[in-house]
């Protein structure tokens, strides 16, 4: 049950970032005045391997059109296998979305490092256009 969004309205994207790795990367995008959709909003957590799949479902049921996980990737300060673990979360969340009749395309993950500002912006913009297409 996605809140009906008028197509003129920007898709709302919830970004999960991580305190020490991807959040600084997103900060850098702003500090460099790179523009991205104002619909993208960030919640920062310690590590992407600790994102509960239920939160993703909760977001998509409560006003968000998409969820983007800005993962630690290989730069994770906690876990060597962070990427694999975050991948498992994505898989579990996607199963959960299917069960609830939500397009799994609404969830996206990419590793964003602390200086990956460009890559963050391009991921968000691409994701944004994917979501726009889904709305159409």
């Amino acid at each position: 049950m996605i809140v009906d969004v008028k197509s003129t309205v920007l898709p709302k994207i919830l970004v999960f970032s991580t305190d020490s790795i991807s959040d600084p990367g997103i900060d850098l995008a702003g500090a460099s005045h790179m523009d991205y959709s104002t619909g993208a909003m960030v919640i920062s957590v310690p590590c992407s391997s600790g994102i509960h799949p239920g939160w993703i479902l909760h977001a998509l049921k409560n006003g968000f059109d998409g969820v983007f996980i800005a993962a630690d990737g290989t730069d994770c300060p906690f876990l060597e296998d962070c990427t694999a673990r975050t991948g498992n979360i994505v898989a579990a969340a996607q199963a959960l979305l299917k069960e609830n009749g939500i397009d799994p395309m609404r969830l996206k993950m990419a590793a964003i490092c602390s200086v990956c500002s460009e890559s963050f912006v391009s991921h968000v913009e691409k994701f944004n256009s994917v979501l726009l297409k889904l709305e159409a």
Binding site: G50, C76, F78, R85
Partner: peptide
């Protein structure tokens, strides 16, 4: 880091300061 949080289907584990209700 919360690796346990993510795998608990019952949402019975949480990191202090990043609880389920709060998120």
């Amino acid at each position: 880091e919360g690796a346990c949080v993510a795998i608990c289907n019952e949402e019975a584990l949480e990191i202090k300061g990043y609880g389920h209700n709060m998120i």
